[in-house]
Nucleic acid binder design. Sequence first.
DNA 1: GTTTTCATGTAACCCGTTACATGATTCA
DNA 2: TGAATCATGTAACGGGTTACATGAAAAC
Lengths: 203, 203
Amino acid sequence: MAGKKGAGVLELAVLGLLHEAPMHGYELRKRLNTLLGMFRAFSYGSLYPCLKQLLAKGLIMEDRPEEGTAALALQSRRSKIVYKLTAEGKERLQELLTEAGPAAWEDEGFGVRFAFFSHTRADVRLRILEGRRSRLEERMERLRAALARTRERVDQYTLELQNHGLESVEREVRWLNELIGRERAEQELASRTSDDKPREMDR
Amino acid sequence: MAGKKGAGVLELAVLGLLHEAPMHGYELRKRLNTLLGMFRAFSYGSLYPCLKQLLAKGLIMEDRPEEGTAALALQSRRSKIVYKLTAEGKERLQELLTEAGPAAWEDEGFGVRFAFFSHTRADVRLRILEGRRSRLEERMERLRAALARTRERVDQYTLELQNHGLESVEREVRWLNELIGRERAEQELASRTSDDKPREMDR
DNA sequence: GTTTTCATGTAACCCGTTACATGATTCA
DNA sequence: TGAATCATGTAACGGGTTACATGAAAAC
């Protein structure tokens, strides 16, 4: 609970990907951008400094392929640097994936969290999905209100834009509804299996 | 063509809104956020500096309500400051709305341009819509490829995310197709009306 | 053997936010 | 008269990009 701040999408994404498999920066960036391609794209200019920083924090470690065992090659020979999570890194990742607050359901962070949902506790998943949904429902309301006002002022394009925006949000809400339904069903199934045990909401 | 750079969404949005009607900062921000609510939300911390900067560039001017005609009130009395476009401001706005390059169809800038499409030349509108579409089609291809690869690795949630992303993009492409169709129809109609006149693409 | 792609990194910069400070106006 | 909201502003900071520099490995 000490001065831990910042976090950021990138940090989480890197930790998450490295948890799946050790990787070097270049590859990491590619995986990053295919994973989150529909939201954003990171550049090397942000990735490498981030790695450096994670290294300094002891959350990841380098795995430089040390070439010919002995003292042959001097320390030059720049080569691929494979990164992997340390124990603290895994802990940190788990911690990030467990927090179910605004950071997890705002536009910024939701995508990444969702991408790593299979490493997230079931109850946290549900809370994040619900948080996201109510966030979008708010937006929907505001959008509907805006639309009602715009309809009178008849700027055809603004109307078209807001309408398309509204439909997008509505669509995402429907998607979330389905996901939440599935999660609930699974949870119920799970609790019915472990049956009479006195509760114990995970963790 | 001299050292004009930066621009930015905010500048365009402010010019666009002020073109519709003079306004003070606070109101401007609200209009801004209902207009572009589904993309982003600006804070005062960026709006006021932007206004200051536009003022310095001579694109907008203040309209301080000068109270009781004469030298009564000393120069204190801070009050609402209504901004409006200058001649150069209108020119600049027109210039911004006429450029049909990447800036106009990337995620960042597309929304704002579209919102002000009714002040944009018909041919420019079409080019921007087409630019946007091909941008999204690229993304679609990459997304489809990513999906194909993900399907084998069976992370259920990643798959779900990418799938939803793909569908969103496909939906936007269909939307654009429709808009482009309408624009084309209108253009044809217009050219058939003015018929044998040697061209003169609007404005 | 040269071009392309892989691979790592840095420095300058930009756009925007957060948090704060201040004051006027409206309304209970 | 005190609280809420309207209204304007600033300083510190942050997270990211662009453009650049460098070099190894693969492809042609």
